Simulated assay, not measured.
Amino acid sequence: MLKLENVVAGYGRTRILNGVSMNVPSGGLVALLGGNGTGKSTTLKSIVGLVAVQQGQVELNGNAINAVPAEERVAHGLSLVPQGKEVFSAMSVEENLLMGAFHRRRDRKMIAEDLEGIYGRFRRLKERRRVDAGLLSGGERQMLSIGRSLMARPSVLLLDEPSAALAPRVVEEIAEAILNLRSLGLTLLLVEQNVGMALDIADYIYVIRGGRIAYEREVGSGIAMEELQEFYLGAERH
């Protein structure tokens, strides 16, 4: 479904990604792990076109999309849940959700159906549909950010650290919500620093360090937290 092949990208003359290669299979849930400044968010931004790919290739459904403008990649099936639980604070919950369907705003009947689907999935959002998004809790804002991205009807959903700065109980709710998204047939790429959460829900993990993939493995094949130390933290294994 989604493939990165030797992707080099960065900001101006500053190179962040130094040849990243990844595969995210159709219907899969893949996690990209790493510490601060390792290139996780830049990887997502290169996929959606917010950061230009200087070398290498990003493919979606077997088609190269390097030259596709960022604003057109949503129509190709890509949707990003950005880091920081970003919402339009002065707009209501429902207005935020409707912004996610802006590119297909003429299809009012389907948008109404999708909106009810989001409310069925995130009942707390339905209860607060008329409330300004800026008044929501951190967990509610994260649900809203995910819901808004789903309103774009993506085939591939990219999530940038959805558990960041949330209480453990809320992290469990978000993890469960992400797992439940698979019932929609979505392909999911999850960027996280929360290793425990990623190992709980992902099929496959990649660890990025210094802008390169340092480690990759299928989850459930004997992977252990201590096994990740060398690759995730740069620590020596004993």
Rank of each mutant, 00 (worst) to 15 (best):
G10P: 02
G12I: 09
G12K: 11
R15G: 00
N18P: 00
S21L: 13
S26R: 15
G28N: 03
A31H: 03
G35C: 11
K40Y: 13
S41W: 11
L44F: 14
V48R: 03
G49F: 11
L50G: 03
L50E: 14
A52D: 15
A52L: 12
A52R: 15
V53N: 09
Q55V: 02
Q57W: 03
V58E: 09
V58W: 07
G62N: 13
G62P: 08
N66R: 13
A67V: 07
P69N: 06
A70R: 07
E72D: 14
R73Y: 12
A75F: 08
G77W: 03
V81G: 01
P82L: 08
V87L: 13
V87M: 11
S92K: 09
V93C: 08
E94Q: 14
E95N: 08
N96H: 08
M99R: 05
G100D: 05
G100W: 09
H103W: 12
R105D: 06
D107T: 02
R108T: 15
K109P: 07
I111S: 04
E113S: 12
I118K: 02
F122D: 13
G134T: 05
L136A: 10
L136I: 08
S137H: 13
G139R: 03
E140F: 09
R141C: 11
M151Q: 04
E161A: 04
S163P: 00
R169G: 02
E172A: 13
A177S: 15
N180Y: 02
L184W: 12
E192A: 08
A202E: 06
I205H: 00
Y206P: 00
R209K: 12
A214E: 10
A224T: 15
M225D: 06
E226S: 06
G234V: 06
